[in-house]
Design a binder for these strands. Structure first.
Length: 723
DNA sequence: ATCGTCATAATTTTT
DNA sequence: TTATGACGAT
């Protein structure tokens, strides 16, 4: 491809980023919808074509498999070459690849396996128990959090100091035992993948120099989401002579709560000498009014590098603000708008409902089912996380390495074969005493005839079964091996007994697993057996949330999972104080700012139409709430908004376009006028009118007071002040 | 081993 | 409200 064509379809800022000097560190502040993937891939192509660099001297890293796949395919188009061996992937995927190449130097067994968060939690549970610690004081979930957080700081258990704090001491003991268990079983968790590589590069001079020389250019996507460890990784690879090209957006940093350090981005200029910052502010996605709202909202945050999105496109329709009576009314409203869009020739999959927390999806699902609108909910268990799949994988891993205790525990009684917790506990004890694996402990117990009849024969049966499967698998290809496991383990027969939908789905999933293994094409790099490659693939790419065809479905997801996506029509729902911003973020200004960025992310998902909804009345955790509209709504310029149903308690002037009058206001069902009004009573304080009855002097209103609860009051006596 | 009962807690999630 | 986990009973 000619150079000219590479720069041709870029705007000025994009072109400056792509064609910057080859040794220039760059931070590209890429606003939402400003074409960052395009800049990233074009930069890579530019370096190859203009500076005659080999594509193999570039390393490009992202966070998700999806983003990595996107980058690969677009790069392939630009370079017109197969892209399979290139160093383009996720942090974890690339770290894994390095560890497979240098397992020895990294102190790992060659057949090391990746464990996912579910395995990790199981292991933590076992360890807390084995150490005899109280799981009330040291909940395994928190132990996992502790371990991961320390690893992300680059700290090993041996480096930690309890400072006489017994709780801390407990965490450290757990971490220590956890490390030992993983090392013994050849297991590596997600954080460990990164930490091992950082340690490897840090401590092994020749290896570090090798890779620093090899990768002249490092490129990162979604830089604002990187954590300490990931940043250390990048800096080690960059070294003195490498060049870092980071793309990110501080305004879209929404993962601070899980360790992402925006500081990595904010300090870029200081950290990398002679670096430059380029802003991509032209937006190719949304209408001008949507961008205006987004800009106004985010300007309420401090500590940002600053950026203002603009478009050469149309002004577009105003944002629609809908004040629902309650959460069911909110859902009904969305259904109605979806129906309208479809009736006018639109597709359902052009629309998305975005909410703050997963619990909100239920009410929408109910409404959508009764309105017969097909929908798809994001989130939930992915393919390789399903129990029946994890069971099958446990057998495969155990065949690979009998000393894999995590897999042993899982496989030994799945499907149930009469090996109960009692028996397993005995095995654990034996293993602990002899410092051997569960498999060895089982052999010892059987040889010593310590176990009684039933348990002993069941266990012996299990060992024989594993040997049988092993023999049968010999020489088979991957697909046939997996089939052998699914059948031989008894898992298939076990789930076939379950005649319910759930059981049938599980059997189908097992079938699909066999199919997936059969057609699996592992990457040719890093000499791994097909089975190892498949197991790594299963751990690193958990697969789709839901299999099957999802044609033309309304999309339901959290605001977090919407990042990176776009839709012609977006509904943001539940925009209320306490829900969004969430209750738990109200105290810390930092957290509140992250909520605001989340709102910014939501707004900027919309291409043409954005609906903002909130309810006056919401049932949450079995309690009736009367939430205030979110502060974020008030931060939007009035001239961007139209209220579809003018609220009775207008708290500020709201610009109303001609369009707002055409839509009929849905009436709160069968309730009197005034319902929803906010009132103040001299004695009971503030509340909301929830019902009315009667006329004239006898008229009564039901008011739910914030502090005094719900009361019926006679209007002519109560002297209510309307707010 | 499976089922029922009780307590408890209840953002956000990728690898 | 509801979902999950722990615990005890069949």
């Amino acid at each position: 491809m000619e150079t000219s064509t590479l720069l041709e379809r870029l705007n000025d800022a994009q072109r400056r980023a792509v064609s910057a000097a080859a040794d220039q560190h760059l931070l590209v502040l890429a606003g939402a919808g400003s074409g960052k993937t395009r800049v990233l891939t074009h930069r890579m192509a530019w370096l190859c074509q203009q500076h005659h660099l080999s594509p193999y001297s570039l390393l490009a890293v992202t966070f998700t498999n999806k983003a990595a796949a996107e980058m690969r395919s677009r790069l392939g188009e630009l370079l017109q070459m197969p892209v399979s061996g290139l160093w383009v992937g996720t942090f974890h995927g690339l770290a894994h690849r390095l560890l497979r190449l240098h397992w020895q130097e990294a102190g790992l067994p060659q057949n090391f396996q990746i464990i996912d968060s579910d395995d990790q939690l199981r292991l933590a549970k076992r360890i807390v128990k084995e150490l005899g610690l109280d799981d009330k004081r040291w909940p395994p979930k928190q132990a996992v959090w502790f371990i991961n957080a320390r690893k992300e700081e680059g700290r090993r258990a041996a480096h930690l100091e309890a400072h006489g704090n017994p709780i801390e001491q407990g965490w450290i003991r757990i971490y220590l035992a956890y490390e030992a268990a993983c090392q013994r079983g050849g297991q590596v968790d997600f954080a460990e993948l990164l930490l091992r590589v950082v340690e490897l590069l840090r401590d092994n001079d020749s290896l570090r120099e090798h890779y620093q020389n090899r990768f002249s250019h490092l490129l990162v996507d979604e830089f604002q989401d990187s954590n300490e460890l990931q940043y250390a990784w990048l800096r080690l690879l960059t070294g003195e002579h490498g060049t870092l090209f980071a793309v990110g957006d501080d305004d879209q940093s929404i993962y601070g709560w899980r360790g992402a350090k925006v500081a990595n981005l904010l300090n870029f200029e200081q950290d990398l000498k002679g670096s430059e910052v380029i802003r991509l502010e032209q937006n190719y996605r949304s209408t001008a009014l949507i961008l205006k709202a987004a800009n106004a909202l985010i300007s309420n945050n401090d500590n940002r590098l600053g950026k203002e999105l603009w478009t050469a496109g149309e002004e577009g329709e105003p944002l629609t603000l809908y004040t629902a009576y309650d959460e069911r009314d909110e859902a009904r409203f969305v259904c109605q708008q979806v129906q309208n869009w479809v009736d006018n020739g639109g597709r359902r999959d052009e629309m998305a409902v975005l909410y703050r927390s997963n619990a909100q999806s239920r009410i929408f699902e109910e409404a959508l089912i009764s309105a017969v609108i097909p929908y798809r909910v994001y989130g939930g268990l992915r393919f390789f996380e399903r129990a029946e799949i994890k069971d099958s994988l446990a057998y495969l891993r155990l065949l690979n390495n009998p000393h894999d205790d995590i897999s042993f525990e899982r496989a030994v009684n799945h499907p149930p074969r009469g090996i109960g917790v009692r028996t397993v506990e005995q095995i654990r004890l034996q293993a602990q005493q002899g410092q051997v694996s569960l498999w060895e402990a089982t052999e010892q117990l059987l040889a010593a005839k310590t176990l009684k009849g039933r348990a002993a024969s069941a266990l012996a049966g299990f060992l024989t079964l594993m040997e049988q499967i092993n023999t049968h698998c010999n020489g088979l290809d991957l697909g046939a091996q997996v089939e052998q496991v699914v059948e031989g383990s008894g898992l298939k027969i076990h789930f076939e007994k379950d005649r319910s939908d759930k059981g049938r789905a599980r059997v189908e999933n097992l079938q699909e697993l066999v199919g997936a293994a059969g057609s699996f094409q592992g990457d040719a790099h890093a000499e791994m057996s097909p089975l190892d490659a498949f197991l790594a693939h299963a751990a690193l790419e958990a697969g789709e949330t839901q299999g099957g065809e999802w044609e033309d479905c309304l999309q339901l997801m959290t605001l977090h999972s919407a990042k990176g996506l776009e839709f012609p029509v977006v509904f943001m729902v539940g925009i209320e104080e306490g829900l969004f911003p969430h209750q738990r973020t109200l105290e810390e200004p930092k957290q509140l700012e992250e909520e605001r960025r989340l709102c910014y992310v939501g707004i900027t998902r919309a291409r043409q139409q954005l609906y903002l909804c909130h309810a006056e009345n919401r049932r949450l955790y079995g309690r009736e709430l009367y939430p205030q509209p979110s502060r974020f709504l008030e931060e939007l310029p009035a001239e961007c908004l139209q209220e579809l149903r003018p609220r009775l308690n207008v708290r500020r002037p709201v610009y109303r376009s001609a369009a707002s009058n055409q839509a009929a206001a849905p009436t709160p069902r069968g309730r009197g006028q005034g319902v929803g009004k906010r009132v103040r009573h001299s004695k009971f304080g503030e509340g909301v009118v929830t019902d009315t009855e009667g006329q004239g002097d006898h008229a009564r209103v039901q008011v739910n007071f914030a502090t005094a609860g719900s009361k019926w009051l006679v209007l002519s006596y109560a002297k209510l002040e309307y707010l």
